[in-house]
């Protein structure tokens, strides 16, 4: 149970990597827009997801 509680503490980061990253990549793909800086869609998505998730974890809020 402690392990699960610890994992939940980092929930925003897991959400950033697990959900936001592929969502960004697939949204770019669906709209025909290419990722900046020569990154692939999923690389760009992972960068966005990790940054957003980390900020949300540190601030305790997505908004």
């Amino acid at each position: 149970m402690n392990l699960v509680a610890k994992a939940f503490e980092w929930g925003p980061l897991w959400f950033g990597v697990g959900f936001i990253a592929p969502l960004v990549a697939q949204s770019l793909d669906a709209s025909g827009v290419s990722a900046p800086l020569g990154l692939s869609g999923i690389q760009f998505g992972l960068a966005i997801g990790v940054v957003m998730g980390t900020v949300a974890k540190l601030r305790g809020s997505w908004i």
């Binding site: 697990g18 959900f19 990253a21 592929p22 969502l23 990549a25 697939q26 949204s27 669906a30």
Partner: peptide, 8 residues
């Protein structure tokens, strides 16, 4: 779902 290509 997201990593299987169904994120949207």
């Amino acid at each position: 779902l997201a990593w299987s290509g169904y994120a949207i």
